[in-house]
């Protein structure tokens, strides 16, 4: 039974290939230049067909695929269902629910425009906003956490501005900044800044005083205590702030691109929606999902690296 389990995804893929080949297409879906879905399924069949055999070369990869076998199998069944519902029987309005072939054709044929121009622009915006917002957030958080005076002046600002959705500022930002790009960077930075500041400050305030006392009896001065006790001890909190900030920045990025910035993947989706090219909208959504998934995964990896001391799984 267990040995069969790892072959389930392959079974689902072969079923999809067979249905795609032998069921007649509905006439309402416009044809595509190449059978992209077939290509994709063959590629997937190769991956999932070889994975169980690849144990000798990459045990980790093969093990991972085996563990998630049921998930992948169900996912391919869903893909199959979607293909049948759209391309084969056209049970949903074709214009809003394009078939997988059409979406894949957009991804392949508009590859350069989507991935280089649009995604590139979004990435630049997000990176600038995220890095500056996180950096300023860390600094304000540290200041508020360690200095009563900074807390006195900054806390009211955080309390008033923090809970406001950054996108509420769009009308002002659009006129206050020389370019919408700069305005969008500011908004994204703002949405990262707030959670990072809050979590950094409360992380530092939550550090047991005993740690500072120990450090001071070991000869650590004020700044050494800040950088070698307060901040490392607050790291778990700081990461929560940065995660929350990252998610907020994704929302802000999309909104900013949809209403102001004339570039980027959010703008592309909005534009294609207005032209009723829903295959392109779905392609854009897939790109967003994959990119944000990768970014969050990257953050998690960084956290695991920085917080090894917390996990309790490291072996020596």
């Amino acid at each position: 039974m267990d040995r069969l389990k790892q072959w389930r995804p392959l079974g689902a893929i072969i079923l999809a290939l067979a249905l795609d080949k032998y069921l007649p297409d509905s006439s309402q879906h416009p044809p595509v230049e190449e059978p992209y879905l077939t290509y994709a399924l063959i590629l997937l069949a190769l991956i999932f067909g070889l994975a169980p055999l690849s144990r000798r070369f990459s045990a980790a990869f093969s093990e991972k695929i085996k563990e998630k076998a049921d998930f992948y199998a169900v996912f391919f069944l869903f893909l199959n269902l979607w293909n049948v519902v759209t391309k084969k029987y056209c049970l949903l309005p074709a214009i809003f629910f394009p078939n997988p072939d059409r979406i894949l054709s957009v991804l392949v044929e508009d590859y350069h425009y989507l991935f280089v121009d649009c995604l590139g622009s979004s990435a630049k915006l997000l990176l600038l906003g995220f890095v500056s917002g996180a950096a300023v957030g860390l600094l304000t958080g540290i200041a508020v956490g360690f200095s009563k005076k900074a807390a006195y002046w900054v806390n009211p600002i955080i309390r008033i501005l923090g809970p406001m959705p950054p996108t509420a500022w769009i009308p002002i930002v659009l006129v206050a900044f020389p370019s919408t790009f700069q305005g969008a960077v500011f908004l994204i930075a703002l949405s990262v800044w707030f959670p990072t500041t809050i979590m950094t400050a409360s992380g530092i305030l939550n550090v047991q005083n005993a740690f500072f006392e120990v450090a001071s009896t070991l000869g650590a001065g004020r700044s050494y205590q800040i950088f070698h006790v307060g901040i490392p001890a607050a790291m778990p909190f700081i990461f929560i702030g940065i995660f929350t900030g990252a998610c907020a920045s994704f929302i802000t990025l999309m909104t900013a691109e949809m209403v102001g910035v004339k570039n980027g993947i959010g703008w592309y989706i909005n534009w294609q929606r207005q032209m009723l090219s829903y295959a392109n909208v779905y392609a854009g959504l897939i790109i967003i999902a994959l990119s944000f998934y990768s970014l969050i995964t990257l953050l998690f990896k960084m956290r695991d690296h920085v917080l090894v001391w917390q996990k309790g799984v490291i072996k020596w």
């Binding site: 005993a210 009896t217 070991l218 000869g219 050494y224 070698h228 490392p232 001890a233 917080l307």
Partner: peptide
């Protein structure tokens, strides 16, 4: 407080983010 007067608490209060070696080195680095 000063390094001339070391203090050991009932709870060891090792810095959890540092290895044992780094904990022991803390005073030298500080």
């Amino acid at each position: 407080p000063d390094a001339q007067r070391g203090l050991v608490f009932q709870n060891p209060y090792l810095f959890p983010w540092l290895t044992v070696q780094a904990n022991v080195s803390f005073g030298l680095k500080a």
